[in-house]
Design a protein around this nucleic acid. Sequence first.
DNA 1: CGGTATCCTGAAGGATACTG
DNA 2: CAGTATCCTTCAGGATACCG
Lengths: 123, 123
Amino acid sequence: MTVSEPDVYDRMCPSRGVLEHVTSRWGVLVLAALRDRGYRFGELRRRIDGVSEKMLAQTLQTLERDGFVHRKAHPVIPPRVDYSLTPLGTEAAELVTGLVEWIERRLPQVESARELHGARREG
Amino acid sequence: MTVSEPDVYDRMCPSRGVLEHVTSRWGVLVLAALRDRGYRFGELRRRIDGVSEKMLAQTLQTLERDGFVHRKAHPVIPPRVDYSLTPLGTEAAELVTGLVEWIERRLPQVESARELHGARREG
DNA sequence: CGGTATCCTGAAGGATACTG
DNA sequence: CAGTATCCTTCAGGATACCG
């Protein structure tokens, strides 16, 4: 395991790193899911469609480290680990789900904008 | 130039694509910048620290296609192109800058959470 | 000035196998 | 079940060159 440096842009503006954790592909979806209730690892994996074990673990670790997610490991066999939002994470999750829900409401407008504009890349 | 398909996850949930355009590394920063006022291409490039010409152009095209950004090309030499937010883009920008500003306010809490947790990866 | 085209590399991230 | 370790592929995105 190699520990990577914060990149140049992070050094110039430390909030960029946090912003990217929270708005990352899987970060958004984890926060949104946990807003409903706490989940076990496997539950989350099934609920968040398409996430790999590796990426889910990585995303949860990053969010835990930033203080957004609380991890509670029960010392039982088979292992049981529950994830939930911290108070800080709850606030973050409200903001990102606000964004997600806004997008879902405005999707028709986005799609008609795309038609007007002519079908081009989906980057 | 190859035009890429929307990937599998986009097909399952079309809002994911829009979410990723808006929360992408440069998308967030473009929306936040344009919230202040309209900018020319070069102005934006200078204002958004670290963005390459290529990525700025690509990001603006994506946001334009989604109906968030308005592009006004003046037929003069040398060329002049102004970018601004559409009404839809203004709403999106408000949500993302809300998130950015929240993160900036909470940064001290995030940093103390990191210290408690012990210094680990910056993924 | 405001792009586009091409090339290239490092990092993100998926598949698989393994473990306590 | 909840991860780690390893390998391998894909792709974001930077560098460079060129153009209207």
